[in-house]
Design a binder for these strands. Structure first.
Lengths: 209, 209
DNA sequence: GAATTAATTGAACGTTCGTTTTATTATTTT
DNA sequence: AAAATAATAAAACGAACGTTCAATTAATTC
Protein backbone atom coordinates (compact mmCIF):
# COMPACT_ATOMS: atom_id res chain seq x y z
CA UNK A 1 0.00 0.00 0.00
CA UNK A 2 0.93 3.65 -0.17
CA UNK A 3 -0.94 6.83 0.64
CA UNK A 4 -3.89 5.99 2.83
CA UNK A 5 -7.37 7.38 2.54
CA UNK A 6 -7.95 10.50 4.58
CA UNK A 7 -4.27 10.98 5.36
CA UNK A 8 -3.26 14.54 6.14
CA UNK A 9 0.20 15.92 6.77
CA UNK A 10 -0.81 18.41 9.42
CA UNK A 11 -2.68 15.89 11.48
CA UNK A 12 0.06 13.31 11.17
CA UNK A 13 2.73 15.72 12.32
CA UNK A 14 0.67 16.75 15.33
CA UNK A 15 0.08 13.10 16.16
CA UNK A 16 3.82 12.44 15.98
CA UNK A 17 4.60 15.27 18.39
CA UNK A 18 1.94 14.12 20.74
CA UNK A 19 2.98 10.50 20.74
CA UNK A 20 6.65 11.40 21.01
CA UNK A 21 6.11 13.53 24.10
CA UNK A 22 4.06 10.84 25.78
CA UNK A 23 6.37 7.96 24.96
CA UNK A 24 9.60 9.82 25.70
CA UNK A 25 8.27 11.12 28.99
CA UNK A 26 7.37 7.61 30.04
CA UNK A 27 10.29 5.57 28.72
CA UNK A 28 12.97 8.11 27.90
CA UNK A 29 14.31 9.30 24.58
CA UNK A 30 16.84 6.53 24.11
CA UNK A 31 14.40 3.80 25.02
CA UNK A 32 11.78 4.86 22.48
CA UNK A 33 12.42 3.53 18.98
CA UNK A 34 11.21 5.14 15.82
CA UNK A 35 9.21 1.98 15.10
CA UNK A 36 7.52 2.17 18.50
CA UNK A 37 6.71 5.80 17.93
CA UNK A 38 5.36 5.08 14.46
CA UNK A 39 3.19 2.29 15.82
CA UNK A 40 1.71 4.65 18.40
CA UNK A 41 0.89 7.12 15.63
CA UNK A 42 -0.45 4.40 13.38
CA UNK A 43 2.01 4.69 10.52
CA UNK A 44 5.18 2.99 9.37
CA UNK A 45 8.53 4.20 10.69
CA UNK A 46 9.55 5.59 7.32
CA UNK A 47 6.63 8.02 7.37
CA UNK A 48 8.13 9.85 10.35
CA UNK A 49 11.02 11.03 8.22
CA UNK A 50 8.72 13.13 6.10
CA UNK A 51 8.23 15.38 9.14
CA UNK A 52 11.47 15.18 11.08
CA UNK A 53 14.83 14.52 9.46
CA UNK A 54 16.26 12.62 12.44
CA UNK A 55 15.20 11.36 15.81
CA UNK A 56 17.31 13.96 17.56
CA UNK A 57 15.80 16.77 15.52
CA UNK A 58 12.39 15.61 16.68
CA UNK A 59 13.55 15.76 20.29
CA UNK A 60 15.11 19.15 19.78
CA UNK A 61 11.93 20.55 18.22
CA UNK A 62 9.87 19.36 21.17
CA UNK A 63 12.26 20.84 23.71
CA UNK A 64 12.69 24.13 21.92
CA UNK A 65 8.97 24.66 21.60
CA UNK A 66 8.50 23.81 25.24
CA UNK A 67 11.02 26.41 26.34
CA UNK A 68 9.73 29.02 23.94
CA UNK A 69 6.24 28.38 25.20
CA UNK A 70 7.37 28.82 28.78
CA UNK A 71 9.03 32.14 28.02
CA UNK A 72 6.02 33.30 26.01
CA UNK A 73 3.67 32.37 28.83
CA UNK A 74 5.75 34.39 31.27
CA UNK A 75 5.84 37.43 28.99
CA UNK A 76 2.07 37.19 28.73
CA UNK A 77 1.40 37.21 32.46
CA UNK A 78 4.25 39.40 33.68
CA UNK A 79 2.54 42.10 35.69
CA UNK A 80 2.95 45.78 34.87
CA UNK A 81 4.11 46.65 38.35
CA UNK A 82 7.33 47.40 40.10
CA UNK A 83 6.44 45.49 43.23
CA UNK A 84 8.90 42.56 43.23
CA UNK A 85 6.53 40.56 45.42
CA UNK A 86 3.82 40.72 42.78
CA UNK A 87 6.33 39.83 40.12
CA UNK A 88 7.64 36.88 42.07
CA UNK A 89 4.12 35.66 42.73
CA UNK A 90 3.27 35.89 39.05
CA UNK A 91 6.45 34.07 38.13
CA UNK A 92 5.82 31.20 40.51
CA UNK A 93 2.15 30.89 39.60
CA UNK A 94 2.89 30.88 35.89
CA UNK A 95 5.71 28.39 36.29
CA UNK A 96 3.69 25.87 38.22
CA UNK A 97 0.57 26.19 36.10
CA UNK A 98 2.53 25.87 32.89
CA UNK A 99 4.44 22.83 34.08
CA UNK A 100 1.47 21.06 35.57
CA UNK A 101 -0.43 21.51 32.33
CA UNK A 102 2.48 20.09 30.37
CA UNK A 103 3.91 17.48 32.65
CA UNK A 104 5.14 15.28 29.86
CA UNK A 105 6.98 17.84 27.81
CA UNK A 106 8.44 19.27 31.00
CA UNK A 107 9.74 15.85 31.88
CA UNK A 108 11.31 15.47 28.46
CA UNK A 109 12.83 18.94 28.55
CA UNK A 110 14.36 18.35 31.96
CA UNK A 111 15.60 14.81 31.48
CA UNK A 112 16.84 14.53 27.92
CA UNK A 113 19.33 17.35 27.68
CA UNK A 114 22.18 14.90 27.37
CA UNK A 115 20.73 13.39 24.23
CA UNK A 116 21.18 16.64 22.33
CA UNK A 117 24.12 17.47 20.13
CA UNK A 118 26.33 20.32 21.27
CA UNK A 119 24.67 22.97 19.14
CA UNK A 120 21.17 21.92 20.03
CA UNK A 121 22.08 21.73 23.69
CA UNK A 122 23.48 25.23 23.57
CA UNK A 123 20.28 26.55 22.02
CA UNK A 124 18.13 25.00 24.73
CA UNK A 125 20.37 26.16 27.53
CA UNK A 126 20.28 29.66 26.15
CA UNK A 127 16.49 29.68 26.47
CA UNK A 128 16.67 28.21 29.93
CA UNK A 129 19.18 30.80 31.06
CA UNK A 130 17.02 33.61 29.72
CA UNK A 131 14.11 32.26 31.73
CA UNK A 132 16.09 31.93 34.94
CA UNK A 133 17.54 35.38 34.47
CA UNK A 134 14.04 36.80 34.84
CA UNK A 135 13.77 35.28 38.29
CA UNK A 136 17.18 36.50 39.33
CA UNK A 137 16.26 40.01 38.29
CA UNK A 138 13.11 39.88 40.38
CA UNK A 139 15.05 38.66 43.39
CA UNK A 140 17.66 41.36 42.88
CA UNK A 141 15.07 44.11 42.58
CA UNK A 142 13.27 42.89 45.67
CA UNK A 143 16.46 42.64 47.67
CA UNK A 144 17.53 46.14 46.72
CA UNK A 145 14.09 47.46 47.54
CA UNK A 146 14.31 45.78 50.92
CA UNK A 147 11.21 43.62 50.54
CA UNK A 148 13.20 40.40 50.13
CA UNK A 149 15.92 39.12 52.38
CA UNK A 150 18.04 36.98 50.09
CA UNK A 151 21.59 35.99 50.84
CA UNK A 152 22.78 34.59 47.52
CA UNK A 153 20.59 35.55 44.57
CA UNK A 154 21.85 32.98 42.07
CA UNK A 155 21.67 30.17 44.55
CA UNK A 156 18.23 31.14 45.75
CA UNK A 157 16.93 31.39 42.19
CA UNK A 158 18.09 27.88 41.43
CA UNK A 159 16.68 26.55 44.66
CA UNK A 160 13.29 28.10 43.95
CA UNK A 161 13.13 26.80 40.41
CA UNK A 162 14.18 23.36 41.54
CA UNK A 163 11.52 23.38 44.22
CA UNK A 164 8.63 24.59 42.10
CA UNK A 165 9.53 22.40 39.14
CA UNK A 166 9.47 19.41 41.46
CA UNK A 167 5.71 19.63 41.53
CA UNK A 168 5.39 17.61 38.37
CA UNK A 169 7.21 14.66 39.90
CA UNK A 170 4.37 13.85 42.22
CA UNK A 171 1.35 15.98 41.36
CA UNK A 172 -1.50 14.33 39.49
CA UNK A 173 -4.45 16.52 38.64
CA UNK A 174 -7.09 14.21 40.06
CA UNK A 175 -5.86 13.97 43.62
CA UNK A 176 -6.89 15.56 46.84
CA UNK A 177 -5.32 18.87 45.89
CA UNK A 178 -6.39 21.14 43.07
CA UNK A 179 -3.85 22.90 40.90
CA UNK A 180 -4.65 26.21 42.52
CA UNK A 181 -4.19 24.85 46.03
CA UNK A 182 -0.80 23.51 45.08
CA UNK A 183 0.13 26.77 43.42
CA UNK A 184 -0.74 28.75 46.53
CA UNK A 185 1.08 26.40 48.86
CA UNK A 186 4.24 26.57 46.80
CA UNK A 187 3.88 30.31 46.49
CA UNK A 188 3.70 30.62 50.25
CA UNK A 189 6.85 28.52 50.61
CA UNK A 190 8.62 30.63 48.02
CA UNK A 191 7.69 33.83 49.80
CA UNK A 192 8.99 32.50 53.07
CA UNK A 193 12.17 31.34 51.38
CA UNK A 194 12.87 34.83 50.12
CA UNK A 195 12.00 36.39 53.44
CA UNK A 196 9.33 38.40 51.64
CA UNK A 197 7.39 40.78 53.76
CA UNK A 198 3.72 40.52 53.16
CA UNK A 199 2.15 43.74 51.93
CA UNK A 200 1.27 45.76 55.01
CA UNK A 201 3.96 44.06 57.04
CA UNK A 202 6.65 46.25 58.41
CA UNK A 203 9.24 44.33 60.33
CA UNK A 204 11.19 41.08 60.25
CA UNK A 205 11.52 38.67 63.10
CA UNK A 206 13.91 39.76 65.76
CA UNK A 207 15.77 37.39 67.99
CA UNK A 208 15.38 38.07 71.65
CA UNK A 209 18.98 37.86 72.66
CA UNK B 1 44.07 -14.68 24.89
CA UNK B 2 42.24 -15.55 28.05
CA UNK B 3 42.97 -14.80 31.69
CA UNK B 4 45.38 -11.89 31.84
CA UNK B 5 48.33 -11.53 34.15
CA UNK B 6 47.49 -9.84 37.40
CA UNK B 7 43.75 -10.01 36.86
CA UNK B 8 41.70 -10.00 40.03
CA UNK B 9 37.99 -10.44 40.45
CA UNK B 10 37.57 -7.98 43.27
CA UNK B 11 39.40 -5.20 41.52
CA UNK B 12 37.60 -5.80 38.24
CA UNK B 13 34.20 -5.67 39.89
CA UNK B 14 35.06 -2.42 41.64
CA UNK B 15 36.30 -0.99 38.37
CA UNK B 16 33.05 -1.99 36.66
CA UNK B 17 30.93 -0.25 39.31
CA UNK B 18 33.05 2.83 39.10
CA UNK B 19 33.04 3.05 35.34
CA UNK B 20 29.32 2.28 35.17
CA UNK B 21 28.43 5.09 37.55
CA UNK B 22 30.55 7.58 35.65
CA UNK B 23 29.37 6.60 32.20
CA UNK B 24 25.72 6.25 33.10
CA UNK B 25 25.70 9.58 34.93
CA UNK B 26 27.14 11.27 31.88
CA UNK B 27 25.32 9.55 29.03
CA UNK B 28 22.42 7.78 30.65
CA UNK B 29 21.80 4.09 31.22
CA UNK B 30 20.28 3.38 27.83
CA UNK B 31 22.99 5.22 25.96
CA UNK B 32 25.85 3.28 27.55
CA UNK B 33 26.55 -0.05 25.89
CA UNK B 34 28.13 -3.01 27.58
CA UNK B 35 30.98 -2.77 25.10
CA UNK B 36 31.57 0.87 25.95
CA UNK B 37 31.55 0.03 29.63
CA UNK B 38 33.94 -2.87 29.11
CA UNK B 39 36.30 -0.68 27.13
CA UNK B 40 36.35 1.86 29.97
CA UNK B 41 37.23 -0.92 32.41
CA UNK B 42 39.78 -2.39 30.03
CA UNK B 43 38.21 -5.80 29.45
CA UNK B 44 36.00 -7.43 26.85
CA UNK B 45 32.23 -7.16 27.16
CA UNK B 46 31.85 -10.83 27.97
CA UNK B 47 33.92 -10.39 31.12
CA UNK B 48 31.26 -8.12 32.63
CA UNK B 49 28.86 -11.02 32.80
CA UNK B 50 31.01 -12.79 35.34
CA UNK B 51 30.09 -10.05 37.81
CA UNK B 52 26.60 -8.94 36.84
CA UNK B 53 24.11 -11.25 35.15
CA UNK B 54 22.44 -8.49 33.10
CA UNK B 55 22.85 -4.82 32.39
CA UNK B 56 19.74 -4.01 34.40
CA UNK B 57 20.97 -5.96 37.40
CA UNK B 58 24.11 -3.85 37.32
CA UNK B 59 22.01 -0.69 37.36
CA UNK B 60 19.83 -2.02 40.13
CA UNK B 61 22.84 -2.90 42.26
CA UNK B 62 24.27 0.58 41.90
CA UNK B 63 20.97 2.23 42.79
CA UNK B 64 20.22 -0.05 45.72
CA UNK B 65 23.63 0.50 47.26
CA UNK B 66 23.28 4.24 46.79
CA UNK B 67 19.98 4.32 48.63
CA UNK B 68 21.17 1.99 51.36
CA UNK B 69 24.23 4.15 51.79
CA UNK B 70 22.09 7.24 52.12
CA UNK B 71 19.91 5.65 54.78
CA UNK B 72 22.95 4.33 56.62
CA UNK B 73 24.60 7.74 56.56
CA UNK B 74 21.49 9.28 58.06
CA UNK B 75 21.27 6.66 60.80
CA UNK B 76 24.89 7.39 61.62
CA UNK B 77 24.48 11.13 62.05
CA UNK B 78 20.96 11.31 63.42
CA UNK B 79 21.30 13.29 66.62
CA UNK B 80 20.22 11.94 69.97
CA UNK B 81 17.96 14.87 70.68
CA UNK B 82 14.28 15.62 70.63
CA UNK B 83 14.74 19.10 69.23
CA UNK B 84 13.20 18.90 65.73
CA UNK B 85 15.29 21.86 64.62
CA UNK B 86 18.50 19.99 65.37
CA UNK B 87 17.14 16.91 63.64
CA UNK B 88 16.13 18.86 60.57
CA UNK B 89 19.50 20.54 60.44
CA UNK B 90 21.26 17.19 60.67
CA UNK B 91 19.02 15.75 57.97
CA UNK B 92 19.69 18.58 55.55
CA UNK B 93 23.40 18.66 56.23
CA UNK B 94 23.74 14.92 55.77
CA UNK B 95 21.65 14.93 52.62
CA UNK B 96 23.64 17.63 50.89
CA UNK B 97 27.03 16.33 51.96
CA UNK B 98 26.18 12.79 50.89
CA UNK B 99 24.86 13.87 47.52
CA UNK B 100 27.64 16.28 46.75
CA UNK B 101 30.20 13.58 47.51
CA UNK B 102 28.39 11.15 45.23
CA UNK B 103 27.12 13.34 42.46
CA UNK B 104 27.30 10.63 39.84
CA UNK B 105 25.50 7.87 41.66
CA UNK B 106 22.90 10.39 42.80
CA UNK B 107 22.34 11.36 39.21
CA UNK B 108 21.92 7.74 38.19
CA UNK B 109 19.61 6.99 41.11
CA UNK B 110 17.40 9.96 40.31
CA UNK B 111 17.29 9.67 36.55
CA UNK B 112 17.20 5.99 35.72
CA UNK B 113 14.24 4.75 37.71
CA UNK B 114 12.29 4.08 34.55
CA UNK B 115 14.89 1.64 33.30
CA UNK B 116 14.17 -0.74 36.17
CA UNK B 117 11.82 -3.69 36.00
CA UNK B 118 8.73 -3.51 38.18
CA UNK B 119 10.17 -5.51 41.05
CA UNK B 120 13.45 -3.66 41.09
CA UNK B 121 11.65 -0.34 40.89
CA UNK B 122 9.49 -1.28 43.84
CA UNK B 123 12.54 -2.14 45.89
CA UNK B 124 14.20 1.19 45.19
CA UNK B 125 11.05 3.17 45.84
CA UNK B 126 10.63 1.38 49.14
CA UNK B 127 14.04 2.64 50.24
CA UNK B 128 13.31 6.11 49.00
CA UNK B 129 10.01 6.23 50.83
CA UNK B 130 11.67 5.10 54.04
CA UNK B 131 14.15 7.93 53.71
CA UNK B 132 11.52 10.57 53.02
CA UNK B 133 9.43 9.28 55.90
CA UNK B 134 12.19 10.32 58.25
CA UNK B 135 11.90 13.90 57.10
CA UNK B 136 8.12 13.89 57.36
CA UNK B 137 8.40 12.65 60.92
CA UNK B 138 10.76 15.46 61.82
CA UNK B 139 8.43 18.02 60.28
CA UNK B 140 5.47 16.52 62.11
CA UNK B 141 7.26 16.51 65.45
CA UNK B 142 8.38 20.09 64.97
CA UNK B 143 4.94 21.24 63.95
CA UNK B 144 3.32 19.59 66.95
CA UNK B 145 5.94 21.07 69.22
CA UNK B 146 5.24 24.47 67.76
CA UNK B 147 8.75 25.17 66.55
CA UNK B 148 7.84 24.70 62.88
CA UNK B 149 5.02 26.36 61.06
CA UNK B 150 4.23 23.91 58.27
CA UNK B 151 0.99 23.88 56.36
CA UNK B 152 1.16 20.58 54.47
CA UNK B 153 3.76 18.17 55.83
CA UNK B 154 3.94 15.82 52.86
CA UNK B 155 4.13 18.62 50.37
CA UNK B 156 6.75 20.49 52.34
CA UNK B 157 8.86 17.37 52.73
CA UNK B 158 8.89 16.82 48.98
CA UNK B 159 9.64 20.46 48.30
CA UNK B 160 12.59 20.41 50.70
CA UNK B 161 14.05 17.22 49.27
CA UNK B 162 13.64 18.54 45.75
CA UNK B 163 15.35 21.75 46.70
CA UNK B 164 18.31 20.26 48.54
CA UNK B 165 18.85 17.50 45.99
CA UNK B 166 19.01 20.14 43.28
CA UNK B 167 22.42 21.13 44.55
CA UNK B 168 24.10 18.44 42.51
CA UNK B 169 22.74 19.85 39.27
CA UNK B 170 24.92 22.91 39.44
CA UNK B 171 27.41 22.55 42.27
CA UNK B 172 30.99 21.70 41.39
CA UNK B 173 33.42 21.34 44.27
CA UNK B 174 36.05 23.67 42.86
CA UNK B 175 33.98 26.80 42.51
CA UNK B 176 33.64 29.94 44.51
CA UNK B 177 31.62 28.19 47.20
CA UNK B 178 32.82 25.43 49.49
CA UNK B 179 30.62 22.47 50.33
CA UNK B 180 30.07 23.77 53.83
CA UNK B 181 29.03 27.20 52.62
CA UNK B 182 26.47 25.64 50.32
CA UNK B 183 25.26 23.38 53.08
CA UNK B 184 24.71 26.31 55.41
CA UNK B 185 22.96 28.41 52.79
CA UNK B 186 20.55 25.62 51.94
CA UNK B 187 20.04 24.92 55.61
CA UNK B 188 19.08 28.53 56.19
CA UNK B 189 16.59 28.35 53.31
CA UNK B 190 15.13 25.15 54.70
CA UNK B 191 14.69 26.67 58.12
CA UNK B 192 12.91 29.65 56.66
CA UNK B 193 10.74 27.38 54.58
CA UNK B 194 9.55 25.54 57.63
CA UNK B 195 9.04 28.72 59.58
CA UNK B 196 11.50 27.40 62.14
CA UNK B 197 12.10 29.63 65.08
CA UNK B 198 15.73 30.03 65.82
CA UNK B 199 16.72 28.85 69.26
CA UNK B 200 16.21 31.78 71.59
CA UNK B 201 13.60 33.27 69.32
CA UNK B 202 10.19 33.73 70.77
CA UNK B 203 7.73 35.16 68.31
CA UNK B 204 6.79 35.04 64.66
CA UNK B 205 6.29 38.04 62.48
CA UNK B 206 3.03 39.81 62.99
CA UNK B 207 1.31 41.80 60.31
CA UNK B 208 0.53 45.34 61.24
CA UNK B 209 -3.06 45.49 60.11
C1' DG C 1 -9.68 13.47 -17.04
C1' DA C 2 -4.77 14.00 -17.26
C1' DA C 3 -0.86 15.67 -14.79
C1' DT C 4 1.05 16.81 -10.56
C1' DT C 5 1.85 16.71 -5.85
C1' DA C 6 1.31 14.79 -1.08
C1' DA C 7 1.41 10.94 1.95
C1' DT C 8 2.55 6.60 2.90
C1' DT C 9 4.11 1.62 2.53
C1' DG C 10 7.27 -2.25 2.41
C1' DA C 11 11.63 -3.79 1.94
C1' DA C 12 16.19 -3.26 2.69
C1' DC C 13 20.77 -1.07 4.38
C1' DG C 14 24.67 -1.55 7.48
C1' DT C 15 25.41 -1.13 12.44
C1' DT C 16 25.00 -1.97 17.03
C1' DC C 17 22.77 -4.04 20.82
C1' DG C 18 22.69 -7.42 25.09
C1' DT C 19 24.00 -11.82 25.77
C1' DT C 20 25.93 -16.75 25.28
C1' DT C 21 29.27 -20.15 24.23
C1' DT C 22 33.64 -22.05 23.95
C1' DA C 23 38.37 -22.01 24.41
C1' DT C 24 42.47 -20.42 26.76
C1' DT C 25 45.43 -18.86 30.17
C1' DA C 26 46.72 -17.33 35.09
C1' DT C 27 46.43 -18.48 39.65
C1' DT C 28 45.50 -21.31 43.63
C1' DT C 29 45.01 -25.65 45.86
C1' DT C 30 46.40 -30.21 46.69
C1' DA D 1 53.76 -30.99 39.49
C1' DA D 2 49.16 -32.15 38.79
C1' DA D 3 44.44 -30.82 39.41
C1' DA D 4 41.12 -27.50 40.15
C1' DT D 5 39.41 -23.04 39.86
C1' DA D 6 39.19 -18.08 38.54
C1' DA D 7 39.36 -14.64 35.02
C1' DT D 8 39.33 -13.47 30.73
C1' DA D 9 39.30 -13.29 25.29
C1' DA D 10 37.33 -14.20 20.89
C1' DA D 11 33.71 -15.22 18.16
C1' DA D 12 29.15 -15.66 17.34
C1' DC D 13 23.79 -15.24 18.18
C1' DG D 14 19.48 -13.29 16.72
C1' DA D 15 17.17 -9.13 17.40
C1' DA D 16 16.64 -4.37 17.15
C1' DC D 17 18.33 0.05 15.88
C1' DG D 18 18.05 4.68 12.86
C1' DT D 19 17.64 5.59 8.33
C1' DT D 20 17.10 5.32 3.08
C1' DC D 21 14.94 4.13 -1.23
C1' DA D 22 11.77 2.87 -4.64
C1' DA D 23 7.14 1.96 -5.52
C1' DT D 24 2.30 3.07 -4.92
C1' DT D 25 -1.87 5.31 -4.06
C1' DA D 26 -4.85 9.52 -2.55
C1' DA D 27 -5.80 14.11 -3.20
C1' DT D 28 -5.29 18.30 -5.72
C1' DT D 29 -4.45 21.18 -9.70
C1' DC D 30 -4.87 22.27 -14.36
Amino acid sequence: MARTTGSDGGRTEAAIRDAAINLMARFGYEAVSMRQLAAEVGVQAAALYRYFPTKEELLFTLMREHMEGLLAAWEAVRPATDDPRAELAAYVRNHIRFHVERRHSTHVSNMELRSLSRDNLTAILRLRTAYEKELRQILRDGTEAGVFDVDDIGLTAIAIIQMITGVIVWFRPDERLSVEEVVETYLAMTMRLTGAEKPGERAHVHANA
